[in-house]
Design a protein around this nucleic acid. Structure first.
Lengths: 262, 262
DNA sequence: CCAAAAGTGTTCGCCGTACACCCATGT
DNA sequence: ACATGGGTGTACGGCGAACACTTTTGG
């Protein structure tokens, strides 16, 4: 939505095109300079930041809706995007009033007031999706009602609107649990990357240290990555080798792991 | 709902008490005679079976709704009950007509027809919950619109209504993945159980064989179960020892496991 | 030549795996 | 006595963990 007209149409006729009571919130993870990042937005005249999100079209599948919303924000498609939880317990999700005031601050920009019985004021459950994107490929698209976009360090997040801190916590837990099943690095890193990069990525996601030698040995033994005969120049230091993912090898490795005892 | 009046009130006024467009479906797992079971219901005059489910009250949290629905069917509360996925992609969830006809077969019992714009005919996403219950403790509560309840072997399910086969598949995958994080046996087995019982349970959930000696060794080493000085009489065979869960030991074991490398 | 970062190999101990015989019980 | 099912110990191999010095590069 980029014009006053579009926003007004959404406010007045959105309930005809979208399902009420349900929204999608996206936790978009990126990785840059040894830090796991999350993309947040700040709505017009709001102090607190929030997760990018949207509604589900009445004629759109849930998966289509999630992909559309992500593409609207990042201009990227065909990304790693996965549902992880539905949020419907938090007091802010049960209490209409606070939500209503928050909406009104936003929509004041187009001169409308959201009443108590307006579809945007109704109780809304939110379906959480998390995405893994290559930080450098993301070009954030400005939107009319959004004042600012920013990548925040996952370890130093501010207090967010609604229950969005809770949503991010759950997304983070899911990411951690999925790191053994999903080629997390494949989605968060560029096609070619160095060992120190993927090493630091795993350390920041799992919040523990790995021995450099054992780490490389394991990844190569699993067949998860392949060393390339190229190096990267990184200033006054020894040049690290570049590696690439071997998705097929990764798939096989995950399969083998799942056959192990508990 | 146990009377015609209650059903009619639900059909005509349900949308005032419940959120439209959203439902909850419960995959209730039990375990009996070396078989993993799932509780299914058959609605009035339907050929196909389906999962027990319900709607979310407008003033009820999501968790409360799931627990209420489960308690309504099984008379049990304080169970293991966990959300695992939202289903909103299946063609049967996008296509109103089929759903409408299905509803009409059910509600014909109270002499009402569900029109195209009726709240029950609208597109509905379903939140999947799975429960682990002690088969022997479940007393199924009859309901007006349900002709039959039955525990089905998880490995021999019939073709179900809507996308319920898909929901069960996903629940089963989740259960498998969670078996290393959750005390699955604690919820599916009685307080005291024998080694062969828990052994067969793990084999049926993970669909592979475990060596009896290694299995016992592992569970005891983890501190997950404790051997009791009692035995169970099982007819013309050697009496197996009884065991009980050590939830605290289990928690510690899971924590330790999560510190291992990948 | 120095600082900073990357590359590399070996040893040890535990855990996961494979494997087979004896024991208890009721008929 | 016998049929059925349950209980129990050992040996091997592989993988995860710990560990430190050398090489490269630009300034």
């Amino acid at each position: 939505m980029n014009t006053t007209e579009e926003v007004l149409d959404f406010v007045h006729h959105g309930h005809e095109r979208y399902l009420p009571h349900l929204s999608i919130d996206c936790v978009i993870f990126g990785y840059h300079e040894h830090q796991l990042k999350i993309l947040l937005i700040r709505h017009h005249q709001h102090d607190r930041w929030s997760l990018p999100g949207g509604y589900i079209g009445r004629h759109e599948t849930l998966t289509e809706a999630a992909n559309r919303i992500l593409a609207e924000k990042t201009q990227l498609s065909n990304l790693f995007l996965e549902q992880f939880y539905v949020f419907g317990d938090s007091p802010t999700r049960m209490n209409r009033i606070e939500t209503q005031q928050t909406h009104n601050t936003t929509y004041a920009k187009v001169g409308v007031t959201i009443g108590e019985n307006h579809w945007l004021s109704e109780r809304t459950l939110s379906i959480g999706y998390y995405a893994l994107v290559d930080y450098l490929n993301v070009v954030v698209k400005p939107e009319y009602l959004v004042d600012e976009y920013c990548w925040w360090d996952a370890s130093e997040l501010p207090e967010l609107e609604y229950d969005h801190n809770e949503i991010i916590s759950k997304a983070f837990l899911t990411l951690r649990a999925q790191i053994y099943q999903q080629p997390v690095g494949y989605n968060l890193l560029p096609k070619k990357f160095t060992l120190p990069e993927i090493h630091a990525l795993y350390e920041s996601i799992l919040d523990r240290q790995f021995d450099r030698r054992n780490f490389r040995k394991k990844l190569l033994a699993l067949g998860m990555i392949r060393q390339l005969p190229e190096q990267r120049k990184i200033g006054p230091h020894r040049s690290p080798f570049l590696y690439e993912f071997d998705l097929e090898g990764y798939r096989r490795a995950v399969e083998d792991l799942s056959v192990r005892a508990f």
